[in-house]
Design a protein around this nucleic acid. Structure first.
Lengths: 181, 181
DNA sequence: AACAACATGTAACCGGTTACATGATTGA
DNA sequence: TCAATCATGTAACCGGTTACATGTTGTT
């Protein structure tokens, strides 16, 4: 059973506790969003597929007249999740448009500006991640918090690196001595 | 004129110097691959679209009977590129499956193993990037090398962070005192 | 009464990846 | 002569994003 990206995150979250599709979306936004996002348009169809594949079961749990389906793992789903967790591969992918701008810059001032704005973006992301730390800290498992802290550390690192390089490029002395063409 | 992801990288690379689709692919693999990849299946159709939109022109430059089309920017393409470079937004996206594994781990040893393997992946990527540094260093522009060094620094940082945390989680004393549940 | 949040789902669109298909040139 | 590299392109597939569509419940 090949799991899709969305399938993996759904199974993992359902093992933590049974949830509805809506709750999965909310939890993704509060936890994995910065390295593994998912929208309703992926979640609901994937829940359907996972149920049809027998990896999860859904039970109706309405609030009054508002329908709500809570899903949980089957034994088979548990097995699929464990299988995936036991592997040690999987992609680490980055898509970084501000960096591409720096890459294609034609003058130090332009590259410096691109890096400054990239630094600002990293600062903002780090801040957003810090803001959801309390939610991660309240969970039973300590590992979501660990992942979140990785995110904060990573973006703080990027921010510092970009700021340093931006400053270096903006300094005429350094720029001239290192780029004599 | 809205540029696609692939369109941006093509325009940028064609301004550095005129190239064929094949050469663009080669240069992507030697430079932006780690934060902005593209395959033939994106490049050739996009070249067609850019030409139809008047942003680039292609001229036949065969090697014997082997056909070859070299593209370069038009004034309009130059303008589109500058416009994009002057903006200061654009996504910074990460997709990190090893981190997702750590996130969903249910025991310190499992999280530690996930982080170890993530650290190994970062080490390998950093090595690959270091290996193409000489090629980047030989270019006219210093900024591709800068971007590449960012990649090396970033993956080295991730490697260190993951190794440290993996070691911490594998140490029974620390683990017990920090996870009393 | 109105709005935010809860809740589920579909359809169209978009763009990237993979596989396929073809053929020439160069160097070992 | 054989393999690697140069070179171009299409088609099928896959999966994610966005917009749309609908209705309930709780709060102000």
């Amino acid at each position: 059973m090949e799991l899709t990206a969305t399938g993996k995150v759904i199974l993992g979250m359902l093992r933590m506790r049974p949830r509805s599709g809506y709750e999965i979306k909310g939890f993704v936004d509060d936890s994995t969003r910065f390295f593994w996002s998912a929208g309703y348009g992926s979640i609901y169809p994937e829940l359907k597929r996972l149920r049809e594949a027998g990896l999860i079961t859904g039970s109706e749990d309405p609030t009054g007249d508002r329908r709500r389906v809570v899903y949980k793992l089957t034994a088979s789903g548990e097995r699929a999740l464990d299988e995936w967790l036991a592997a040690d591969d999987g992609p680490i992918e980055l898509r970084d448009e501000p960096l591409l701008r720096a890459f294609f810059s034609t003058a130090p001032e332009q590259a410096s500006a691109a890096l400054e704005s990239k630094a600002a973006a990293h600062a903002e992301i780090a801040e957003q991640l810090s803001a959801i730390e309390p939610k991660a800290a309240a969970l039973d498992s300590p590992f979501p918090l660990l992942a979140l802290r990785y995110g904060v550390a990573l973006h703080e690192f990027s921010r510092r690196w970009c700021e340093q390089q931006a400053a270096r490029l903006a300094d005429p002395e350094v720029t001239e001595s290192e780029e004599p063409r």
